[in-house]
Nucleic acid binder design. Structure first.
Length: 641
DNA sequence: CTAGGGTTAG
């Protein structure tokens, strides 16, 4: 009764009953100690009872030490442990302490207790095995494992899981087959699920199928957990037929089975099959809905996302985040921000990913004020030390032109990863600090960070923005030869941009012709922009034709060509381009830009002279253009209107 | 009444 009351949140009733008891045994006292130490702030009342009780046994000590360990009071736990008479010092007391230390990563203290134990049991040994694995000391774990005389299911699975988490299949599966030869230990389905998980994650098809074949003989192939993990594994292998047949053969399915299969189809881009299952599912939960929303947003179908989200009965933080980040990846930043502020008005609390997505949206819009508000939310919610948020903040402040703030945040990151470096390198590059960007790249290399494709986009654009042509060419070569990263379309577009902006247009064309794949519109776009700046009608035509082939509705080729013909006085050609544009039915919305100065948004449309300070702005612009001419960044007087 | 591992889907 005491325990029943305590476990149902009625500690007071338990205490009343305890006080009324005509006589109490050690077990009654122990039950109360456990009840108090497990309830918030009850540790000292628990200890008071422990001191007061007339007689104690080993369970009393273990319970009390557990209480101290679980409330982080290791000093008190250790003191009590040392004061416990040896004949009462059950292995459980030591095991509690050992596991407490292991969970905190305090391996030395755990080992000390372990070494001092006079009678170690299988729990003590298994705890050391697991604790070493969890603290990235798998090989030490193996030493403990080999030293144990008596091994049970926990010992084996701790060791096997340690290997599987690291993808050490030879060691893990080797032990697994050794375990099968032991008569005294059972193979538990749940251990096999972790093997399937690892096979899926490390893309080990052969091993996954082998283990699957093996367990189907053991009689628990119809276990729900096991079936679910098989569905997930085969989905990762892109074997949806097998995943489906596992699903169909399962005698008992739960909502996770349905969700796993839906998610599998979505990962393999079969939205129709996914939606069919979603509709057919006997029950749906927040995960089912969110899975579908994520699937649609990855395919750019944000309308469908909104529809599903609206119909969804209960929305949690992850669901909101799926909606918001879906908008962000599709460039719908206003919608993302709007949803974020809607979310704040509900009781659902944003998680780090939500705030990071909202910050990305602000970065996309370059709305400094709004993003700063979200930064304030980050601080308010104590998420400043979240790495993904810090990285997004670096990007955000950079995009808003606030390199100093970006750099300040970058430097405050305790454990930066390559993404942090990528964000800062790109941030420097975007703001014209090419030298700083390249220096930071070299720093990341000397510190042993592995560069990614994104790293080189930053590096190449840094070279572009300061005209470092040779360095850019060099990095482009190194990328492949030294870092083993294949240049993609974006890297090539960067190179064309680099050569084009430096006036080396013929080199740019040579580069395009030497590309190992068909140039995309980004590559041609870079050439078109350079041709416009340098007034190379021939290359502008080449680029324009190719863009039109790839993106028939893109207005840029028509606009640039007609402007250039117009300047050159070639009225006929200009007219021809304009007519072609009309025939295609292409409408170009006027270019628009804006900047917030002292809380006021200043908007500029192309050709628009209505700004209050138009004269002054134009004057400064002319000064800048003169300087550009002096530096030979422009070859002639022609400028796009 | 106390102590160890494993839990699939967003």
């Amino acid at each position: 009764m005491l325990t029943a009351y305590a476990q149902n949140g009625q500690l007071k009733r338990a205490r009343e009953l305890f006080d009324e008891m005509p006589e109490r045994t050690i077990v009654s006292w122990n039950a109360m100690i456990t009840a108090y130490t497990r309830s918030k702030g009850g540790i000292f009342e628990g200890f008071r009872l422990f001191v007061k009780m007339p007689e104690r046994n080993e369970v009393s000590c273990a319970a009390m030490i557990t209480g101290f360990v679980n409330s982080g009071r290791f000093d008190e736990a250790e003191k009590l442990y040392n004061e416990t008479p040896l004949e009462l010092r059950d292995p459980s007391c030591s095991n509690v302490l050992i596991n407490g230390y292991l969970k905190m990563g305090r391996l030395d203290e755990a080992t000390q207790i372990f070494d001092r134990m006079t009678k170690k049991d299988v729990v003590s040994w298994s705890s050391m095995v697991d604790g070493c694995c969890k603290n990235d000391r798998v090989d030490e774990a193996r030493e403990f494992f080999d030293a144990i005389r008596e091994r049970n299911e926990v010992t084996w699975s701790s060791m096997i899981n340690g290997y599987m988490k690291l993808g050490r299949f030879r060691d893990g599966l080797g032990l697994f087959s050794e375990m099968r030869r032991e008569d005294a230990v059972r193979i538990e389905p749940i251990l096999v699920t972790t093997i399937f998980e690892a096979c899926g994650r490390f893309d080990r098809y052969t091993e996954g199928c082998q283990v699957h074949g093996l367990v189907s003989h053991l009689g628990f192939e119809f276990d729900v957990f096991l079936g679910n993990s098989l569905i997930t594994m085969y989905s990762r292998f892109r074997c949806m037929d097998v995943a489906r047949s596992v699903f169909d053969m399962m005698l008992e399915k739960d909502i996770v089975s349905w969700n796993s299969l839906i998610s599998g189809y979505i990962q393999n881009k079969d939205l129709e099959e996914a939606y069919g299952l979603f509709e057919k599912a006997p029950e749906k939960d927040v995960v089912s809905w969110t899975t579908m929303i994520t699937g649609y947003s990855e395919e750019g179908l944000t309308e469908k996302c909104i529809g599903l989200f609206t119909m969804m009965p209960e929305k949690d933080a992850i669901a909101w985040t799926a909606l918001i980040s879906g908008f962000v990846i599709n460039g719908q930043y206003e919608e993302a921000i709007c949803s974020f502020f809607q979310m704040l008005q509900t009781a659902v609390r944003p998680n780090p990913l939500t705030l990071s997505s909202a910050l990305s949206a602000s970065a996309g819009l370059a709305t400094l004020n709004q993003g700063t508000q979200i930064h304030a939310q980050v601080i308010k919610r104590n998420m400043e030390s979240d790495l993904s948020i810090q990285n997004t903040l670096v990007s955000f402040y950079s995009k808003c032109g606030n390199v100093d703030d970006a750099y300040r945040i970058f430097n405050s990151i305790m454990a930066p990863n390559i993404v942090s470096f990528n964000s800062m390198i790109s941030g420097f590059a975007q703001n014209g600090f090419g030298k700083e960007a390249l220096k930071l790249f070299e720093k990341s290399q000397s510190r042993g960070y592995e560069p990614t494709e994104i790293t080189f986009l930053g590096v190449l654009s840094a070279c572009t923005h300061v005209g470092l042509v040779e360095e850019g060419r060099n990095y482009f070569r190194l990328m492949k030869s030294l870092y083993k990263i294949e240049p993609g379309p974006d890297h090539c577009a960067c190179m064309v941009d680099l050569l084009g902006r430096s006036g080396l247009l013929d080199d740019a064309v040579t580069f395009i012709n030497s590309m190992p794949f068909v140039p995309d519109s980004g590559v041609w776009g870079a050439l078109l922009a350079a041709s416009r700046t340098r007034f190379r009608v021939d290359l502008a035509m080449l680029a324009a034709e190719n863009i039109s082939k790839l993106e028939p509705n893109n207005a840029a080729p028509y606009v640039v060509l007609s402007d250039m013909y117009s300047f050159a006085g070639k009225k006929k050609e200009e007219e021809r381009v304009r007519t072609a544009k009309k025939l295609q039915g292409i409408k170009k919305s006027p270019g628009c830009s804006w900047i917030t100065v002292k809380n006021k948004v200043n908007t500029f449309l192309s050709g628009d002279q209505s700004h209050a300070s138009f004269k002054g702005i134009k004057c400064v612009l002319c000064l800048i253009l003169d300087e550009m001419k002096e530096l030979h960044w422009l070859d002639h007087d022609w400028l796009p209107p």
